[in-house]
Design a protein around this nucleic acid. Structure first.
Lengths: 151, 151
DNA sequence: ATTATTGCAAACGCTTTGCACTCCC
DNA sequence: GGGAGTGCAAAGCGTTTGCAATAAT
């Protein structure tokens, strides 16, 4: 199977949480892993419908949340009032540059940011359990072939 | 007048952009500056109505955008799929810790992040005009008196 | 058998839009 | 007087919810 390792991870995550193993959940997982780049829940739902993979909207939303919880995809937020997801490529953490004009998203690696986050959490004056962070840089990309502002 | 300086700044911003000076825009500005903490556009609109300051929803939304453009307030995004604003206190840049459980927002100062952003933008392999960044840390705050998870 | 999960459609919250009216320049 | 700005209500969009039907344990 194409995503055997991910299936195994998701399976044990579900069993661990006393959640049920359903075919729909794995259909969503496969589609999410197949998706190139960032995607919204609704976007994935439509995409699946178009490919004749019929899982209800509610199930897609719920399942993406589960897959994010178990770490196979990552939840993102690019300031457009919707939740985006993307495949998690393991340890290599990266953040995003977003063109506010054409929507282009560029990824960059930030070895320094992780230390900074740890440092900040450690120095707080109240107890805080870290979950995640978002670090986005916004601006305009001046890509003459793509960016609406400059072409 | 209470916010004379801000009125002046907004006035010249509007004139500069060949936009009109209207009473509604200054009602929104005053209400935004009076608001304690972060607020959404709709939240401000309701708040204004409650105080018998009657400006239409559309105008509140449009005007907040303008005020943010001229820098008197800052646009934020805390991962809840809505746009938040807050008064801009000038140079002292700060970022946010968000409790994903009770919604509490804690501000912290980050002298290091600005340098990091500059460094990243400088080393990109394409031309990019920086506008802003978001840096939020998510987790649970374990405030026994407030946080739903621990009380 | 029990009960979590599913599918569907309706409701939700925030935001944007269309259009006639207003009033700043 | 012209056109940007306003107000209102309706529509839009992504997301969540309620409930009956289904299927995993």
């Amino acid at each position: 199977m194409k995503y055997q390792k991910e299936h195994d991870i998701f399976t044990s995550f579900l069993k661990n949480g006393k959640s049920r193993i359903t075919p729909e959940r794995f259909l969503v997982l496969d589609s999410a892993l197949d998706y190139k780049g960032h995607f919204g829940a609704d976007e994935l739902y439509i995409n699946m419908r178009n490919n004749n993979v019929n899982v209800s909207r509610a199930t897609v939303y719920n399942t993406l949340e589960l897959i994010a919880q178990c770490g196979l995809i990552v939840k993102r937020n690019f300031g457009d009032n919707r939740t985006s997801y993307e495949k998690n490529f393991g340890l290599k953490n990266h953040d995003h540059i977003v063109c506010t004009n054409c929507g282009k998203i560029t990824e960059f690696e930030t070895p320094k940011i992780k230390k900074l986050v740890e440092e900040i959490c450690k120095n707080l004056d109240f107890e805080f359990e870290f979950e995640s962070y978002t670090f986005n840089i916004y601006g305009t990309c001046k890509d003459k072939n793509q960016c609406k502002k400059f072409r």
